[in-house]
Design a protein around this nucleic acid. Structure first.
Lengths: 356, 356
DNA sequence: TTGAAAGCGGTACCAC
DNA sequence: GTGGTACCGCTTTCAA
């Protein structure tokens, strides 16, 4: 007897139908789980399918139904703990709702982001979750929307795009930490971000295209103005795009006589690098420098001293965006939701009075 | 004049062909970039495509060609920095080779892994990169191979699976750190891993189904035996599956009078948790406890003291696996490659003499 | 060089 | 309940 497993060079509905002695249409009904079939036939078809090791071809299915069961996700960089956690939130919700996730990194580069969207559209994803690299450059997203594709924005909104958006209350968080630093007597407070401008210099918040970061800087500058601190724009440093860049920038900044007495790091990667530079320069935290970082990365609680951070609901950000998208995918209509999740400052021990 | 953008409810080759006044076949040839066409016709078709805002349907294309331009990746958990870095390596290579990546988390759960593979097969990915949760349970992978799908194994091999495999020299690394600890006088050395056994107790390395970890434990036990340390099996603790579990285990272990004088953490998540527990219990590192962790996570260099780690070429692991897969995808035949990448111990300050 | 037509593997509509 | 069949959008012979 031939014991070898059936050579499964793609067993099709037709094959199963043939073996079960029914029509292709009938076999398709039981295999696809739609329509009505008699129990007898159902069993026969099921048995035949098992014997032949039938595997549905999702591609073919998608082509006729128009649904691919896939959602496309475009983020800046999965390597950043912020995004990997958010992506986790997304995939958890997606899987539970029966969707698969295709993940593409944009590297915070608009052309790459455009290419990613194009690829995703070509693959006929059912919906899109994007963390736009630049809020000002979203024509490609607008196009996607126009073509009827549900889209949800993650961590970064867009005033001109009327779509479901989930962000954190970054401005409020930035205001809080800035106020606190000022209250402690700090006047030379630097804000360090990966976001870049064409000439790598900061002039006004409007130059910052990453929404979440722009809002933080607006909050920071706003509070400074309230406190009659002028020209704080000079203390905003952009372009900390890699650990190496960050390291160089932080070192340069901290070596000057008029060095900042406090630094606000826009993400945990930057916070970490600043921490390292302080070690190298033998600057005490918080004695010589107060440090606050956005993102409650896991390591921030074990350093000496532990780092005061802005805790964002990162997992929730992804989770919520995915939930909104899934709802749309299930046909929910209605105006775009703009959800703002609360942040919280986790007080640890990296900030102190400014030595005047 | 009607200025509104063309309603692009899926513009097809036929539409473009019609507008350009050529046959569907001809339009398809220029749109798909194959066959030969006259320049005149090419231009006409191109113009028509642009005017209509034609977007190829990859799904349909894949269905006829049988290639989807997609590679499926199944890892334990993207949230683990180890995997997110490896995935980065994979996606970088994949994108450069023109492939898109579909990422699925298995949560180190075999049933989930099986489901993931099934999904990926149904989506007709061109190839697979998997980090098998259990090396002993790979029937689903064998099936994938049988159906002709190129597969590459990441970080965890399988003796019974004859496929391209990329791992790190975990055994060697474990031997090195164990030797060093023993030389420093340590006798009570604990090994802590997330891998679990049915009854959450460790007896023999054969119980460990995650290849990379099994090899490390084998190395650890081997060196212990060489040094005439017996019964070290009792010092291997399994089931540190979440930070909470790890915390509990570490705390319990470190509160006993016969507590270990050294701990080897199987990944950075575990290392971090051990570090936290020491803080809570007011145990000095390395005074009261020596700590070595696998994975050179970014935070390990900023703690006090900085942590001695085994640096694995994580990005390279992903990169290499993807390269091997892409080669197969491009038709390369030949025996399976088994690549072992070198690790290195990064000496920092978390280990010291055992207080006897 | 170009066109007509046959699939790919499903789904879905319409008779029987 | 079941079978026949026309698609879905693209690729790919095969002729002209």
């Amino acid at each position: 007897m031939d014991q070898s497993p059936p050579r499964n060079t793609s067993v099709t509905v037709a094959d199963v139908a043939h073996k079960a002695g029914v029509s292709k249409a009938t076999a398709a009904r039981v295999l696809g789980g739609y329509g009505t079939v008699s129990d007898r036939v159902r069993e026969a078809v099921t048995a035949a399918a098992r014997a032949l090791d039938y595997r549905p071809n999702e591609l073919a299915r998608s082509m006729t139904t128009g649904r691919s069961g896939t959602i496309g996700v475009v983020v800046g960089d999965i390597e950043n703990p912020f995004f990997s956690l958010a992506v986790r939130g997304i995939t958890d919700v997606a899987r539970q709702a029966g969707f698969t996730v295709i993940l593409i990194n944009s590297g915070e580069d608009v052309p790459a982001e455009k290419a990613a969207i194009r690829t995703l559209l070509a693959k006929r994803v059912d919906g899109l979750i994007v963390s736009p690299a630049k809020e000002s450059d979203v024509e490609h997203l607008r196009e996607a929307i126009r073509s009827g594709l549900p889209l949800a924005l993650l961590d970064r909104g867009s005033d001109t795009l009327d779509v479901d958006t989930v962000i954190a209350d970054d401005r409020h968080a930035a205001e809080g930490v800035t106020r606190r630093l000022i209250a402690l007597g700090h006047r030379r407070i630097a804000y360090l971000t990966a976001c870049d401008t064409p000439d790598h210099r900061f002039r006004t918040a409007a130059d910052i295209n990453t929404g979440s970061v722009r809002r933080r800087i607006e909050g920071f500058l706003g509070v400074c103005r309230e406190a009659n601190l002028d020209g704080m724009e000079d203390w905003v440093h952009v372009g900390a795009v890699t650990p190496e860049h960050t390291h160089r920038m932080a070192a340069a900044m901290l070596r000057t006589p008029q060095r900042p007495t406090a630094i606000i790091a826009s993400d945990s990667l930057i916070g970490l690098e600043v921490f390292k530079v302080c070690r190298e320069l033998d600057l005490g935290i918080p004695g010589d420098l107060s440090l606050v970082s956005f993102h409650d990365a896991d390591w921030t609680s074990v350093t000496t001293p532990p780092v005061t951070v802005v805790r964002q609901p990162v997992y929730g950000l992804g989770e919520t965006a995915a939930k909104l998208l899934v709802e749309r995918l299930n046909g929910k209509a209605g105006a775009a939701n703009r959800i703002v999740l609360r942040t919280e400052v986790v007080d640890r021990a990296s900030i102190a009075d400014a030595r005047v």
